[in-house]
Amino acid sequence: MTEEIIIAGFGGQGVLSMGKILAYSGVMENKEVSWMPSYGPEMRGGTANVIVIISDERISSPIVNSFDTAIILNQQSMDKFEKTVKPGGILIYDPNGITRHPGRKDINIYTIEAADEASKVGLSKVFNMVVLGGYLKLKPIVQPEYIRKGLEKSLPKRHHGMIPENEKAIDKGKEIIKAVQLLN
C-alpha cells in the first residue's frame, strides 16, 4: 500500500500540522512516511501545501505530481491541484470560500463543511482535525490508536490537554463528510 496525499490551503488553516500529525501517526504504526512542505514564497504569500506519503515500502520520491487523494481548502489550491488527482482518486474539499467547484468526471469528490462546523461548536482551532477525520473515514490508512500517538508526538507537551478536543474533532469530521460524486 502506498498513499500519496496533497493537502493545500491558506497558511494558518493548519495544513502543515495536519500533514505532520498524519505522518507521525504513520511512523507510530511503523509505516514508511515522508512529509514535504512548501516552504517557499507561496507560503509567504498566504498559501501552504504539503505532500504526505505513507507506505508499507521504502518511499522512492518524496515529491510526486499526481496524488491518490487531494485535500483542498481554498480556491487557489483548487485551481492548482484539482488536475493532479489520479483518475479514480479522491478529492476532498471544504466548499466554504470555493467559487469554482471541481468539474472532473473521473474522480471521487467529497465535501466537508469543516470551517462551518468548527465555528459552530467553537472549535476553530481544530478545524484541520475535522478535515483529517473526514479523510480517515474514507481512507483508514492509520488506526485511531496511532492517530492518538501521532497527536502526542507532534503536539508540544503543554498542549496535550487539547488532545481529547482534537479527537472529538476527528470524530465530527467522520460524521459530516459527504459524497458529491462517486465512481461506481
Binding site: 514535504m36 512542505p37 516552504y39 518524496p62
Partner: peptide, 10 residues
C-alpha cells in the same frame, strides 16, 4: 538542498 533540509522522514 532545500528539499532534503525541509522534508520530514523517519
Amino acid at each position: 538542498d532545500g528539499a532534503i533540509g525541509q522534508m520530514m522522514e523517519k
